[in-house]
Design a protein around this nucleic acid. Structure first.
Length: 827
RNA sequence: GCCCGAGUGGCGGAAUCGGCAGACGCACAGGACUUAAAAUCCUGGGAGAGUCACAUCUCGUGCCAGUUCAAGUCUGGCCUCGGGCACCA
């Protein structure tokens, strides 16, 4: 054994041995309790970044800990390997996306292995390989069969830079989530998944997820955006055609002074065709549609509109009101038409002022009148109805209910629930994705690719420069096929699937990754699911986590899985920052994990990143801090090294007897206290930082013991060191394995049972009591633990300092907290 | 605007059920070892007053109130920062 820890050789030695002995391979063992520990799989960009290191270090501690706790632990890893970066890199470096991707995977797999992570590599999945995307395609067909996948023409989000459509969720601040280019609207025929069919369940079952952060659940709630309201039907005066509008404030329906249509609303043309309003209105609509998505959806944009010349009848009071077209009503939400109540809505108020439309107050605050001449703004709160016919005097809440009822009775409205959540647009006009397994036949129309013909292979020899059309259109061998139903000439769908489709079910494939007959066997999925602990960045709070939940629910309805929620517990880790900012190439503050591992070893990197902050919080990278972790590892090594040296060369330092001396007892108490703290920190709170600091204290205690105790208790020392190495094993697996072997212990440290602590060892004979006077610490007292309350109070009152402090004063009260303090209240 | 989360030494952070604020680590200072340096080991440390040095006292967890014998922790109101949603009718 060398005096210094040579991490380079030793980490390599253990990684090779673990791989050789396949120690992390796992099978279903029905008699054993399972634990599924999952970290979000990476996009193979080429190199690990610190966010990965943090994510996978956390997951590895959990997986190793649970394994030592006796669980059958599934801990897999794979690659989310379809997507745009491969195409962009390929264009830049003239290399095929498949080659680029596989090279990156190879590189990153080596980097992961160099971290000493306990993955079962037999279960590795790569979403861009046919053995995986075959089943993505198969799942698409199941969605199609169950009417949860459909095609429709719609105004979709288009990123001109990426030359593809984007899902609503991928539009951030009106720009492309990836490149920030302002998103345009394009009318295209696209494939959708009917996620809205599950909107209510996705919302309701959030309460079944107590192991998720509130924050994430709130974000999903907001995203689903449920609102309860009423659809009210207004009638066009001249033609009698119906315009349904949606409102959450039916109590204000007597205050309607106009109605507004979205620019895209089909009624617009019907109202204006052939009238003098036709030309100006069409110009206005054109102008609105030319706005970028940012301008279109920004609350800052000036509200504009134009009168159509037509009038509608308000069903509540038969009033005749003008119909306008505006830029602020969204066609996609509700009915694309809104009633204008300027008195009680800020937007409507601004709009009415600008175009001099009447403002009529119909709700007033309780106990207060509203003077329409005086009031200079909308009153948007609930209140008491007035100017509202027979509904006068009702509260807003009552009014909403009564008006809805009344309108329903007369057939002019119905209660309705609306969601902000839209169906999920999954087609992409790009090359590097799973082809959608659909064939278009001139005679038979839209036809599914028969399951036995899957996978529809993505051709590899392709000119894939973005053109706005799928590059697959330019490959005749791919494009032209025959119809599976009639055998006639047909063409394939050339769009590929959004990569989020691939990542919506990968956690199921891990349960049965090698299956060539099915996506996964029901039996194996039933054994492993749910994921007991999912760990990843909060940036996936909406997209990935919502889609994966949707998939799981749909697959449950198809009878493919037995659970309706995929992830029992979710841990969202914070970002890794440097100098206060997220590490990024453009900021030039990137620290490469590869360099850190080369310089200090994987154990140091893991230890630092777990020690520097609790997992949910952002972590500030510190090179000095890394050195501190490195020093600690060397310190542990030296402790064992000198201990072994003494064992062989200075036997007279040790004695073999029971734990009698106070130093022995202190060490034993420290050991068992540490076991307790570390266990609870990992198991209950995921506070790895405090778990590590507890271990550091134990090491400090061992140093003290070794330097100060003349005759060391050999057995106690041996026990303490063994348990120390076990406690360290999840954090620094290589160091622990090597020292375990060096101490001459059998098997691997990683296959040991997690130690239990001895409650009796935690007990002390004496305890220090704090004595406060009026809440301030004035003295301390060391007393036997079993000392009674009365005796304690007596002693506390009689100490010199207390006597001095209370002399001449009246003792009004004495509060005693056994084992902790005595507070003497004096006046 | 609405909804979350967070503010503690020079820094990262700890205090788990209302009971000694600052564990552990970083940085710093001093000492030991060394020809020397590095490495290592040991010691110290919130701020201020006070003392030759102790002792001792005061203040201190974003701000202002409150509850309590006792508040970083509970309540109310604010401030700042971070995140999410936002023309959703």
């Amino acid at each position: 054994m060398q005096e210094r820890y040579n991490f380079k050789d030793i980490e390599k030695k253990w990684q090779e041995r673990w791989e050789r002995d396949a120690v992390y391979r796992v099978e279903e063992e029905p008699q054993k309790e399972k634990y599924y520990c999952l970290e979000m799989f990476p996009y193979p960009s080429g190199n690990l970044h610190m966010g990965h290191v943090r994510n996978y270090s956390i997951g590895d501690v959990v997986a190793r800990f649970k394994k030592m706790r006796g669980y059958n632990v599934l801990h897999p890893m794979g690659w989310d390997s379809f997507g745009l970066p491969a195409e962009n890199a390929a264009i830049k470096h003239h290399i095929a996306p498949m080659t680029w991707t596989l090279d990156n995977i190879r590189n990153m797999r080596e980097q992961l292995k160099a971290m000493g992570l306990s993955y079962d590599w037999q279960r590795e999945v790569t979403t861009s390989l046919p053995d995986y995307y075959k089943w993505t395609q198969w799942l698409f067909l199941q969605f199609y069969k169950h009417n949860l996948a459909y095609k429709k023409k719609a105004h979709v989000n288009w990123c001109p830079s990426c030359a593809t459509v984007l899902a609503n969720e991928q539009v951030v601040d009106g720009g492309c989530e990836r490149c920030e280019t302002p998103v345009e609207k394009k009318a295209l025929e696209q494939w959708y998944f009917r996620i809205t069919a599950y909107a209510q369940e996705l919302l309701d079952s959030l309460v079944d997820l107590p192991g998720w952060p509130e924050k994430v659940k709130t974000m999903q709630e907001n995203w689903i955006g449920r609102s309860e309201g009423v659809e009210i039907i207004f009638t066009v005066e001249k033609t009698g055609e119906k315009i349904p509008i949606y409102t959450t404030r039916p109590d204000t329906v007597f205050g309607v002074t106009y109605i507004v249509l979205a620019a895209e609303h089909p009624m617009v043309n019907k109202l204006i065709d052939g009238t003098s309003y036709e030309k100006p209105v069409k110009e206005f609509v054109k102008k609105v549609q030319q706005l970028t998505e940012i301008a279109r959806t920004s609350a800052e944009t000036e509200k504009e509109g134009i009168f159509t010349g037509a009038y509608a009848i308000n069903p509540i009071n038969q009033e005749r009101i003008p119909i306008w077209v505006t830029n602020y009503v969204l066609y996609e939400y509700g009915t694309g038409a809104v009633m204008g109540v300027p008195a009680h809505d800020e937007r409507d108020y601004m709009f009415a002022q600008k175009y001099e439309l009447p403002i009529r107050f119909v709700i007033r605050p309780a106990e207060q009148e509203i003077d329409p001449e005086e009031k200079q703004e909308a009153y948007v709160d609930d209140g008491i109805m007035f100017n509202s016919g027979s509904f006068n005097g009702l509260t807003s809440a009552e009014g909403r209910h009564k008006i809805a009822e009344y309108l329903e009775e007369m057939g002019a409205g119905k209660v309705m629930v609306n969601y902000r959540l839209r169906d999920w647009l999954i087609s992409r006009q790009r090359y590097w994705g799973a082809p959608i397994p659909i064939i278009y036949c001139e005679k038979c129309g839209v036809v599914s690719v028969p399951e036995q013909d899957l996978p529809v292979i993505l051709p590899l020899d392709v000119e894939f420069r973005p053109t706005g059309e799928s590059p697959l259109n330019n490959i005749p061998e791919f494009l032209h096929t025959s119809c599976p139903e009639c055998g006639g000439p047909a063409t394939r769908e050339t769009d590929t699937m959004d990569t989020f489709v691939c990542s919506s079910w990968y956690f199921l494939r891990y349960a049965d990754a090698q299956n060539t007959e099915e996506a996964f066997s029901r039996e194996k999925v039933d054994y492993w699911m749910n994921v007991d602990q999912y760990i990843g960045g909060v940036e996936h709070a909406i997209l990935h986590l919502m889609y994966a939940r949707f998939f799981t629910k749909a697959l449950a309805d198809f009878g493919l899985v037995g659970v309706r929620e995929p992830f029992q517990n979710l841990l969202t880790q914070g970002m890794v920052l440097k100098d206060g900012f997220k590490m990024s190439k453009s900021k030039g503050n990137v620290v490469s994990p590869e360099e850190i591992i080369n310089k200090y070893g994987a154990d140091t990197a893991r230890l630092f990143i777990l020690f520097a902050a609790p997992p949910e919080r952002d972590l500030e990278w510190s090179d000095r801090g890394v050195e501190g972790s490195y020093r600690f590892i060397q310190r542990v090594w030296r402790l064992i090294y000198h201990y072994l040296q003494d064992l062989s060369e200075a036997k007279d330092k040790f004695v073999n007897n029971g734990v009698n001396s106070s130093a022995d007892k202190d060490l034993r108490r420290l050991l068992h206290g540490t076991i307790k703290r570390v266990t609870e920190d990992i198991e209950l709170r995921f506070n790895f930082n405090t778990a590590i600091s507890a271990i550091m204290e134990l090491v400090n205690g061992l140093y003290h013991y070794r330097s100060e105790v003349e005759k060391q208790n050999a057995q106690l020392l041996q026990e303490t060191i063994e348990k120390l190495l076990i406690l360290l094993a999840p954090f620094t697996p290589h160091l622990s394995a090597e020292l375990w072997e060096a101490v001459g212990l059998k098997d691997s440290v990683h296959s040991q049972d997690w130690p239990a602590y001895d409650e009796a060892a935690l007990k002390t004979e004496e305890v220090e009591i704090v004595i406060q006077i009026n809440g301030k610490v004035r003295d301390r007292l060391v007393i036997p633990v079993e000392l009674g309350r009365e005796e304690l109070e007596k002693q506390a009152l009689s100490t010199e300092k207390v006597q001095a402090a209370i002399s001449g004063k009246e003792v009004r009260k004495v509060i005693t907290v056994p084992g902790k303090l005595v507070n003497i209240v004096v006046k």
